[in-house]
């Protein structure tokens, strides 16, 4: 085998590694920026936050937690909802249906933020926790509708 052939034979595996690396990186980047995946993640994140708030409020109403723990759980839930909304707001739509879904999802997450804020207000003595439950239900229903099969796709 000539010297140049040996050299090209040595280079071939390197080229293959580079191509595979690019392919994997490209597929990962595609997965990261896929609006459907981003929306699914946001629905899950939002639902988790709303359910956490519901549990924290229920425990508070039963007198089973400290106010500081409830407040912390609610603040954490609000942060999750805001993070999810921010991620959705920054996602570029690839079709008119994506754009419509993004708007619906932002509305649903806003309902969640409003409900959790009402709970935090109640903890601070503004309003009562009784009014929070229906608001959380509404947010959950909106998120469930988007999370149902076909909801965000």
């Amino acid at each position: 085998m000539s010297r140049s052939r040996r050299a090209s034979a040595r280079e071939r595996p390197h080229a293959a590694v580079i191509v595979v690396t690019f392919a994997v990186a490209a597929s990962l980047l595609t997965a990261c920026t896929n609006p459907g995946a981003e929306f699914d993640r946001a629905v899950e994140q939002g639902s988790t936050a709303v359910e956490t708030a519901r549990l924290a409020v229920a425990l508070e109403r039963d007198g089973r937690t400290f106010a500081s723990t409830t407040t912390t759980a609610l603040e954490d839930a609000r942060r999750e909802l805001v993070d999810a909304a921010s991620a959705v707001a920054e996602t570029d739509a690839e079709s008119p249906s994506d754009a419509a879904l993004r708007a619906d999802l932002l509305d649903a997450l806003a309902l969640g933020v409003t409900a959790v804020n009402e709970a935090l207000d109640a903890m601070a003595g503004i309003g009562t926790l009784d009014a929070v439950e229906p608001a959380l239900d509404e947010a959950e229903e909106a998120l469930d509708a988007l999370g149902a099969p076909g909801g965000t796709r």
Binding site: S47, E51, T52, L55, A56, T69, D76
Partner: peptide
């Protein structure tokens, strides 16, 4: 359907 993302969620079952 609560995925844990914060320490405040870890203690809720105990409460």
């Amino acid at each position: 359907s609560i995925d844990v993302t914060s320490l405040s969620q870890v203690v809720l079952p105990v409460a």
